[in-house]
Design a binder for these strands. Structure first.
Lengths: 354, 354
DNA sequence: ATGAAAGCGCTAACAG
DNA sequence: CTGTTAGCGCTTTCAT
């Protein structure tokens, strides 16, 4: 009952040919007499034979498999990235091994090791921190590795990312043009290079034109909302809030509502990372739109080049983002004391008197 | 320069032991003298040796790999599902091969075939239609297969899904309790079993209490919005809109705005599939919340049981959903002619006169 | 154009 | 406890 699956030998026997001929028919390697080929194909169909790639790879020493590591598959940004990669890979006849690191460097290293176990032809990694732990292992295994979305520190490597600095600066200039002077900038963690670049862009664009206040809000929605709500509940309210990732933007909406502030009159809200729902909320949220699909395509393209033997020095690619300007960052209709700042000043005055 | 990667033989030579001993140390199969084990580990470290699972699987005939097929990795629902699966799999020491079918049955069959090529110990599939094409191939390869989220037709098999009927009925009753009498039900395609079940639940709950109108809106956001906008622009406006998947819900918000209708006064909006942003839009959207994480865990649990040799008859699991009731389905504050229905009647009267 | 035989890297079975 | 040997399923010489 538990007879083994048909192997290439089973097929060869049934077709009355050698295993080599079966292999040649299936892989179209050497030419085979039409009649034999037909017999082989009939045997394959009858047995429901499916070749074992493991064995095939072992012998032929070629792969057509690439590994992918992303921080979190439940995050739509990474989901879209992986979807784009998968499509590109399939067009080149490659299979993808997709794993997630759970935003944990230790996991990242562990997953990378596991991937190497499969002898992939290459790796694409979205690092969860500013380093790729286990990079040495990939190097030792002589597997080309492309970093995507984030710039890892250390030795130069191929990176495909987005021009965070320019995009953030553009958005900051848009806020200033709208009359905003005190921008609260909220990111998951200011330790991530990506976030740092965005902050740098904002600082460069606002120098002398607006005050920038930084806030770390953590990786989860709950944390983002809590940190922002706490900040908005005390102290001088900003007249603009720039969230540096999609989760923080969602958290900001909740926190702003909890604080009783109005968008865009009390403060403008803009985010890095554009998602469909941002058009549906009210008011619609302005956002920096990243070319996720192209990010995937370009990363795959680089990897294919490396697999193909390209030995040029590592190249860093920066893709431009676009600004999706919507109502949340429209200029405020200011009237003295009707803004949040005005109300805050009034309240503070009262508190000082009492 | 292009010397081969270290193999188990390289390690054995360096450590001065046999390959069997290296294998035993690395897999903790048979006990090995501490001193030899130490030598082996030193050699492994020195060489940066990483075992080749392909070869190991080939010889040992055991896998610890499962294949996963989902319709679209960019859809957060499937992303969360896969993330849950991955976590469960890792706890059992399994690796996942994740592929997507692009909502195309032909692709689904092709991807399934490719997965079988890897000799997985099992498969978890979210079918994109009411059949799993290539099911026979999996059966022939004697690979246990668990269907998730959707109920494929044909021979009975293990399925882990959600109780669509009950959840949709609960939500429909909520609408009726709120005074709604004309429910427009919008789903991607009424051909999907999942959607049919939800429609059945709604019909059962509304029988005699409210009118139900069905609308197919397609799979993409743009299509959903267009179809809904077109429907809302003509004919008798419904007093409730029940969207049957997350994409349609987002499309509905746009369509409702375009039609100039107010939620919940003109019509209530409720959706199947809950997402974080639904709490952030205004008004917040009521939704059926599916236990995605449990869906993944249960699917994995069934697969592990089957891999473990469980030969019990196929089991179909139905997980309960929860209703997240928010403002979009609050009872309408009705006043004659101020509702959309009233305005429509007025306008119709005028048109009839002219 | 075809077949026989060797061997990819590993583990299982068998000796010792 | 350790080493030797055979062989997993496939592709690739090398003969024919």
């Amino acid at each position: 009952m538990t007879s083994k699956l048909p192997s290439i030998r089973t097929v060869a026997n049934l077709a009355g040919v050698s295993t080599a001929t079966v292999s040649n028919v299936l892989n179209a390697r050497r030419s085979v007499a039409p009649e034999l080929a037909a017999r082989v194909r009939a045997a394959v169909a009858e047995l429901g034979y499916i070749a074992d790639v493991g064995a095939s790879r072992l012998r032929s020493r070629k792969s057509a498999v690439a590994g992918v590591v992303v921080p979190d598959l439940a995050n739509p940004f990474f989901g879209e990235f992986v979807a784009a990669l998968e499509q590109a890979a399939r067009q080149d006849g490659y299979e993808l091994l997709i794993v997630s690191s759970g935003d944990d460097p230790a996991q990242e290293a562990a997953r990378l090791r596991t991937l190497l176990t499969w002898r992939p032809a290459g790796l694409i990694v979205i690092p969860c921190r500013d380093m790729i732990a286990g990079l040495d292992a990939a190097h030792a295994a002589r597997v080309p590795l492309i970093a995507a979305d984030r710039f890892p520190e250390g030795p130069a490597m191929d990176v495909v990312a987005v021009d965070n600095r320019a995009a953030a600066a553009d958005m900051a200039r848009h806020l200033i043009a709208g009359g905003r002077r005190h921008i609260l900038v909220a990111g998951a963690s200011l330790g991530i290079g990506n976030i740092r670049e965005r902050v740098e862009g904002i600082r460069a664009a606002t120098r002398g034109a607006a005050e920038v206040e930084l806030l770390e809000v953590g990786y989860t929605l709950a944390d983002s909302r809590a940190h922002l709500a706490e900040r908005l509940a005390r102290g001088l309210p900003p007249d603009a809030l720039f969230t540096l990732n999609n989760v923080a933007t969602l958290g900001a909406i909740g926190a702003i509502a909890a604080a009783g502030l109005r968008v865009p009159d009390d403060l403008a809200l803009v985010g890095f990372d554009d998602e469909e729902w941002m058009r549906a909320v009210s008011p619609p949220v302005s956002a920096v739109h990243q070319p996720v699909e192209r990010l995937g395509q370009e990363a795959w393209g680089r990897l294919m080049a490396r697999i193909g033997g390209d030995a040029a020095p590592p190249r860093q690619l920066r893709l431009p983002c676009t600004l999706e300007l919507r109502d949340s960052s429209a200029p405020a209709r200011r009237s003295a004391d009707s803004t949040a700042l005005g109300r805050w000043a009034q309240q503070t005055r009262k508190e000082t008197l009492s």
